[in-house]
Design a protein around this nucleic acid. Structure first.
Lengths: 237, 237
DNA sequence: AGTACGTTTAACCTAACCTTAACAAAAATG
DNA sequence: CATTTTTGTTAAGGTTAGGTTAAACGTACT
């Protein structure tokens, strides 16, 4: 498993710096794809599977934050590291809100970057990586494709799911018949756990229940104060 | 919703800075334990369960790295964030080698710290924490799942239990056939031992007895002035 | 500007939960 | 055996979490 080098998407508009950094990372056994701007970065992201994304914040056309958001919509797990020239608090906060995993101010030491990357990859490795790859589920009579974001019941037309609907249902499915803690969904999907996000989540639970109503072997149960449980009643028995 | 606050171990030798930081984090809904040096930090770490550790690097007797290593020996998962006054590359590298999750140079912005903590906890929330807690019990003809909070008798519909019912029954089951002291339940579940909580507990005992009535091999007995006993009459005999 | 879509916020209602009170029954106490 | 203390049980009350719908908001696309 460890034979294949980790793939990095590096998006950096300064060509000199970009090349230097790419070479440095390549020398350290990373498989680096370099993109010169946000647009190109997103295209390349869609076409491949990266283990980590390093995004410059200041870029023409599409800045790093916007790109990060787009990336997050496609993939909620891939680690994102921002590079920025200035130490602006706003930027840092914005970055973390966009789902950053780390943040580096230029000029930074390349060795430090390397250590950060290693630390991040290590963390990811310890987490259930299998989960992040799983995107197809059978839920009673339903089939959920959470990559393409649709839900199909038997031979009926498939329903399109919004990003939040999709992620929530996916999390529930990942914990099929088991408790899916409120807190988990809130931190993973809403990235904040407060009264409003919690209410928002309830709204989405209601939406999902509506979709699932056609199949009475499938149900979303509440465990008061804890979270929800997607139960699938197995036949007979 | 009663989300229990995340526990932070903060080890910082500068008393002024330590207090300020502790207060700031407390204000932001963290449950902070402050230790004044590495030694004390490790003692406190062993005595409790923390969600995250924030360690100053420069400390008398035992520096942050040494402490981090000791902590890692006890727990290889808990996130560790270092604080350091100087931007020394050596230190940063050493920190990551010691298993750091992040690194902050003083002076740092407190909001940035907050975001980092959130980002780290979010990452951690994604892996299912290995809850070594025991939550499944067989009580005569009953099956109690105290994680999903339900009680099932043979092949009947399972009953949903409220948090208090569930915790109380779980405590009783944990002490099956043995004395479960009043005081224990009151301090563990009600977090206070007074006349009213005690009466409340009696109400819950009554509720549990009602649930358990269908199986006459199971019974909750009172031991006057001491507590309760969940007895399970084994067959034959 | 206008439309479409996804998401959040507000509002209102119901269900779940916990405590308290009230009264009855046991058990201890002297 | 009268009295106090503890426990058993039920029901009322208050508080919070959750269910649901609709309106408001925001952003992207026309």
């Amino acid at each position: 498993m460890e034979t294949i080098n980790k793939k990095i998407l590096l998006v950096e508009d300064d060509p000199n710096f970009g090349i230097v950094l790419k070479d440095y990372l390549s020398m350290n056994d990373f498989d680096v794809t370099l993109a010169k701007n946000g647009m190109e970065g997103f295209e390349k992201f869609k076409k491949d599977n990266f283990d980590i994304c390093i995004l410059d914040v200041m870029m023409p056309y599409k800045d790093g934050f916007t790109l990060a958001k787009e990336i997050r919509e496609k993939n909620e797990n891939v680690p994102i590291v921002f590079l920025t020239a200035k130490t602006m608090k706003e930027d840092v906060l914005k970055g973390y809100k966009a789902g950053a995993d780390d943040y580096l101010n230029k000029p930074f030491d390349s060795e430090v970057l390397l250590m950060k990357l290693k630390a991040i990859l290590q963390r990811k490795a310890s987490n259930g990586l299998a989960d992040s790859k799983k995107f197809e589920f059978t839920i009673g009579g339903f089939h959920l494709n959470s990559k393409l974001r649709f839900l199909k019941y038997k031979d009926t037309e498939s329903i399109k799911l919004s990003p939040k609907e999709n992620e929530l249902l996916r999390l529930l499915a990942l914990h099929e018949n088991d408790l899916m803690p409120r807190e988990l969904a809130l931190t993973k999907i809403w990235r904040d756990d407060n009264y409003f996000t919690s209410r928002s989540m309830d709204v989405y639970i209601a939406k999902l229940r509506k979709y699932l109503k056609v199949d009475d072997t499938v149900e979303i149960l509440n465990i008061h104060g804890e979270g929800f449980r997607l139960v699938i009643k197995t036949e007979g028995e």
